[in-house]
Design a protein around this nucleic acid. Sequence first.
DNA 1: GATGAATGAGTGTTCATTCAT
DNA 2: CATGAATGAACACTCATTCAT
Lengths: 195, 195, 195, 195
Amino acid sequence: MPKLGMQPIRRKQLIHATLEAVDQVGMGDASISMIARLAGVSNGIIAHYFQDKNGLLEATMRHLMKALNQAVRTRREQLADDSPRAHLKAIIEGNFDDSQVNGPAMKTWLAFWAFSMHQPSLHRLQRINDHRLYSNLCCEFRRVLPLEKARSAARGMAALIDGLWLRGALAGDDFDIEQALQLADDYLDQLLANR
Amino acid sequence: MPKLGMQPIRRKQLIHATLEAVDQVGMGDASISMIARLAGVSNGIIAHYFQDKNGLLEATMRHLMKALNQAVRTRREQLADDSPRAHLKAIIEGNFDDSQVNGPAMKTWLAFWAFSMHQPSLHRLQRINDHRLYSNLCCEFRRVLPLEKARSAARGMAALIDGLWLRGALAGDDFDIEQALQLADDYLDQLLANR
Amino acid sequence: MPKLGMQPIRRKQLIHATLEAVDQVGMGDASISMIARLAGVSNGIIAHYFQDKNGLLEATMRHLMKALNQAVRTRREQLADDSPRAHLKAIIEGNFDDSQVNGPAMKTWLAFWAFSMHQPSLHRLQRINDHRLYSNLCCEFRRVLPLEKARSAARGMAALIDGLWLRGALAGDDFDIEQALQLADDYLDQLLANR
Amino acid sequence: MPKLGMQPIRRKQLIHATLEAVDQVGMGDASISMIARLAGVSNGIIAHYFQDKNGLLEATMRHLMKALNQAVRTRREQLADDSPRAHLKAIIEGNFDDSQVNGPAMKTWLAFWAFSMHQPSLHRLQRINDHRLYSNLCCEFRRVLPLEKARSAARGMAALIDGLWLRGALAGDDFDIEQALQLADDYLDQLLANR
DNA sequence: GATGAATGAGTGTTCATTCAT
DNA sequence: CATGAATGAACACTCATTCAT
């Protein structure tokens, strides 16, 4: 008798096992059987739920992206203040959400960046994600800056956010999130001041 | 004695073949035999000159780092103007040198970032490289800013440079270097203005 | 579930293929793929059941040791006469059992002796096996000889058995088992006479 | 200018390096380049003096056999007493000469036994060596025993010698040579008493 | 006489994938 | 739904051998 509704449970199990595996040994050495072992299921099950390894990796990336979007959206929805500045801060902070700055997530993002350069389906996801950050920022800057200035500000802020995140990820345990937020905040002030 | 002085020639050959291979198929699929084929030599020669695959990858990373340092140093040495601002601009521009923004180099850097998270010897190299950028920037900022402000500025600028580079690399052919330099320059102005 | 209970079948298959391979080309040239071919299975299956080549070799050695112990035990259990002499003869004869004097077994034992000098896990097995022969002999000698004489007799008899076996193995097809048993028997008479 | 008379020097160097290599890692892992390194010469030199690896191994085996024969002959020549008993003791003792019971020699003999089963040229050498021990013993026994008894005694004594040596070699550092000689001596007494 | 660069076949091992149960 | 047995290609690496110098 088939257990009903196993699909979402198994998928979550396997995606988390993938993150854990990448955290432990890197994406290159995260084999199907290791992931299956971490998830406590058999090898074959991955084909059942994700077709093949690429399917699992793509699903894992979508999971991270969804978590990022969720982190940003939640912060923006809970805003008392509807000012551009408040929204921009929320976007910045969302990018340094717990779901994005833990070991497994950081290592997996790094691995995906490299991998996506040679995998069209992942590259598309990657570009969508990059564009969403820019687009979110640009929208808000647009409320207080002329178009070209807004675009420029969005490009700069997106780069600073990613750069801070990247250097933090590479630094490992020394990632000082408060400091990163402070730097982004200072930059934001300057961008907004420069009308 | 056999042909003498082949070592530096072969090493260069193989490092360039590695960059080419990573550019074509990514580091995960850049096999020893593919690299050897691209270099026009036999598989076994890699062991002869680099001990093993890791040795070759590490040498390739050192090559990229050396090129980056060289690009920065050359620009600084040729400076007519010895002002902090000029030096900082030279550092920024060095990071977007041709040796760093071509396809093979960008893909290889991305791959190394991911890989270094699980390879202590590469991680060490990575940290040295990250620190050098910060350190170079900090020195120059220090000439015009108080210590804490200089540190902050260096951290911010390092992050912006890396972020611009990263987003450019992920964008692929659409990497607009002029635009990136402009954004970094604007940020630099603001940092220097904020004494 | 897939075919159940394949493990013991496959393990026997592969151990016998190993003995055959060592018989045909020696342990140095008995490659995984040759063994797999002889067993009629794929290369990869060895990892599935024995982890790696060493695991297979160790299992093969255990198989030979088990056969030897079985050959001795069976003879002793079927003894009508419970005298020390009868037991000692049974031990001697067990060491020249068909399972121990055929080509594959002899060549594999020789190879293991050499190999065990550099493989701690096999060396341990080897010592256990050596000690068991001595120990079995000593127990029986002890029933009719004082301690020191029993020990001496056991050492001598163990050496003679191994020496006869060794020279027989090296002689190849000319191994005259009857002659070997006769020599061991004569030696036994002398040891027992020397109270 | 070619150095004259290098051949015997280089050959000795390489044979000793081979024994050392086999002692350290076993014959399976004693590569040409390891042997060359231990000898302090280049890889290519082995082909120069021994044609190929087999040539070197065969020469090494001949070296061990020569040392064994020398050890026996020297003892017999220095005998004051020309009795069969004295000669037999000399033969026994020669087989436990320092040149035969050190680590490198023991490990190499074991490896050769295994290897010779699949290498006709080495097998021939092996049989010559085995036969020489038997033949030497038989000659002396013949002086005091009838033909069949002499043959039997020689077979038994050869087996005991080899068996004691083998069990000693497998025991490693615990090889008690005095004990082995005592056991062989006791056996000798019994064989000579049984006219 | 001696070197060490270069080869390329061969090794053990790993792994994503398939499939009968 | 789920298993784990089985495959076979691919991998990094080793090595005896060759040969120009």
